[in-house]
């Protein structure tokens, strides 16, 4: 308890730390938001809750790391991971997901859970269990007293790339023919089929797009933090929390929730200790669910 007061005291004593925590949180939250957006897409369009979401992120990281080992410039790893993970996503859709998509929720949960374990173990066999990262050797800008706010160039570039990717995906969904088809399928897949949309193609496209988004996020993560074959679960958990909190089909909500959770976690880690960082995300989810439940109850009472 003393510790918590001491930590809060530090925040008050050095107000600039608050700014630093928020910046750090927003930077990590941007990447959570990407993975969450992919999840929302698959969830909304196909009603498949992809438990292997985080493992796609890590796989993308390893694609980029492998390319960097082969001498490819790390930044190019991001688009390349997008393309390669697209291919992998498409293969996984055709071999696994297409068989469970019409089944009940439980079957698809089990299938993607199995997929998550498989992917983590395969990556472990191929790359070993060491943590890996790509060091960009870029400068770090320091601002504020004590240089407390540090902006590593890699992080800034990573966030910018995440933003470009997000904007690209949004424009694609709004403007392109395929984007329209995806949205139509999400609204009512039977009606979409009646109107001549090849929903199987839409599903395959959506799943591949999700894998690609995750892959690009992973390629950014490997430049900024570290990856390890078993780190997928942390990204899966955050993606679920964010999507559940923000709701499906609510892209601004997903992004806001992603950034918010990033910042909240950093605050939690500062005040309660880093061991509680993930607990903060889950507590926030509980709060949102309770709030929703209460509101829903009130709504029902009105309807009666």
């Amino acid at each position: 308890m003393d510790n918590i007061w001491f930590n809060i005291g530090l925040l008050l004593e050095y107000p600039i730390v608050n700014l630093k925590i928020i910046i750090d949180g927003v930077m990590i939250g941007a990447l959570f938001a990407l993975a969450a957006y992919g999840l929302a897409l698959v969830w909304g369009v196909m009603n498949v809750k992809n438990l292997a979401q985080g493992d796609f992120v890590i796989a993308g990281g390893y694609v980029s790391w492998t390319l960097a080992q082969m001498g490819v410039y790390p930044l190019l790893g991001v688009p390349l991971a997008f393309v390669i993970m697209w291919g992998l996503g498409w293969v996984i859709y055709k071999t696994v997901i297409t068989r469970v998509i019409e089944r009940d929720l439980f079957t698809s949960l089990l299938a993607t859970f199995g997929l998550a374990i498989m992917m983590a173990q395969i990556m472990n066999l191929i790359f070993g269990s060491d943590t890996q990262s790509v060091d960009m050797h870029w400068p770090t800008w320091r601002l504020g007293e004590l240089g407390i706010i540090e902006l590593p160039a890699a992080k800034v570039v990573g966030v910018v790339m995440a933003a470009i990717l997000a904007i690209g995906v949004v424009l694609f969904m709004k403007k392109s023919r395929m984007g329209q088809a995806i949205r139509a399928t999400a609204q009512d897949s039977r009606a979409a089929r009646v109107l001549g949309i090849d929903t199987e193609k839409v599903y395959a496209f959506t799943f591949a797009l999700n894998a690609a988004i995750c892959g690009a996020a992973g390629a950014i993560i490997v430049m900024i933090w570290v990856i390890q074959p078993f780190y997928g679960i942390t990204y899966s958990v955050r993606a679920f929390v964010i999507v559940t909190a923000a709701g499906l089909g609510n892209l601004p909500g997903v992004i806001a929730a992603g950034l918010g959770i990033g910042a909240a976690e950093q605050y939690g880690a500062h005040i309660f200790g880093i061991g509680y960082q993930q607990a903060i995300a889950v507590v926030l989810l509980l709060v949102v669910l309770f709030y929703r439940l209460m509101r829903q109850r009130r709504l029902r009472q009105v309807l009666q």
């Binding site: 390890q228 078993f230 880093i274 960082q277 993930q278």
Partner: peptide, 9 residues
Amino acid sequence: PRDLSDMTA
């Protein structure tokens, strides 16, 4: 935490 990847805090 066991799945630590960020020590910034």
